[in-house]
Design a protein around this nucleic acid. Sequence first.
DNA 1: ACTTATGAAAACCGATCAGTAAATGTACCT
DNA 2: AGGTACATTTACTGATCGGTTTTCATAAGT
Lengths: 192, 192
Amino acid sequence: MSASKRDQLVQRALTVFYRDGFHATGMDKIAAETGVSKTAIYKHFRTKDDLIHAVLRLRDEQFRNWLYRRMEELGDTPKERLLVAFDALAEWFEEDGFQGCMFIKAASEYQDREHPLHATAAEHKRLITAHFEGLAIRAGAKSPGTLARRLTLLKEGAIVAAHILGPKGVAADAKAAAAVLIEHGIGEEGQN
Amino acid sequence: MSASKRDQLVQRALTVFYRDGFHATGMDKIAAETGVSKTAIYKHFRTKDDLIHAVLRLRDEQFRNWLYRRMEELGDTPKERLLVAFDALAEWFEEDGFQGCMFIKAASEYQDREHPLHATAAEHKRLITAHFEGLAIRAGAKSPGTLARRLTLLKEGAIVAAHILGPKGVAADAKAAAAVLIEHGIGEEGQN
DNA sequence: ACTTATGAAAACCGATCAGTAAATGTACCT
DNA sequence: AGGTACATTTACTGATCGGTTTTCATAAGT
């Protein structure tokens, strides 16, 4: 199997796992829906968990690339970019097939914090918070780490709320709350 | 089986499902760990989903009772009580066996919003937000619904963060953010 | 003592689980 | 054409899934 075929497998497995969940999706379904036989899958991934791990790494890369790029496109200054993160989330929430955050679900199904898949989910969250913190620093926040963590809380809460209750208005609520926290953490004249 | 035996079954099933997840827990394990034979279980619950539904209803009742009581005990005024909700969360996060929010996990494993278990999870979240809103009204918030929804976002985000990254400092971050949002939404002199 | 309910336990059902081994193509080399 | 190496499919493993049927133990009624 070529490298691109492998990538295709992981990409398609991502779609299935995201749609149906991890434990609820058997390897037979993965084989059927990706068009790759089980034997071929197990040639590249020792176990189901290994495949899921590859899926999560791909998702991490895709999601963060998308979010960071969208934040750059929608905002001009670090401060603005922190705020428009919630506009990007709004776009995501409204997408067809939005089913919440894959990492929250992974952590929910693999609860033990020692579990490698849980750890991968945790790393994803840490990376996003770190990105926020970088922007908070450049925005002149008094306590960049604090502001970044607060915005992360709003982001996670918004994802959960959008998934459980539906997307309507959630991102807007979160953005408005974020604006308050950002003003409080930077002041009207953050040095962009 | 007496009513109290049934309650005991649901209570013990709750513990197992909360610890190990829904799909990952088979009915044989439930029978073994509750001490109630599968036959006896299926006399009272038509399906596994029915049992889980009973578990979620019990959890909803227990959790909200606990949270509301703790908010009353820790705060004297409506405004204070909104804030100390995050102290109550801190206590929960530090408990042995804390594994995140059962309803977030239920919604993660039963993703379709039409699914009855997902709907039960959604109702739980709505009830808590409604409780917040009642307090926000009595605290004299300018827009009680908005404030309640914002605090809910922080709460959900804090639960997710505490579960994925560990409890350390999460509730304190959320409380500090909540304080900012509450001050902004009420003003220094909310009429308690 | 013998029958008849009752309720729980044990055994079982087909389906599916993660994972593997054997069988079958298929492409390439000489 | 014949042989070799590799990829793919088919078929299978024992275990477990949610759920049901059968067996058994107990106890009350007569």
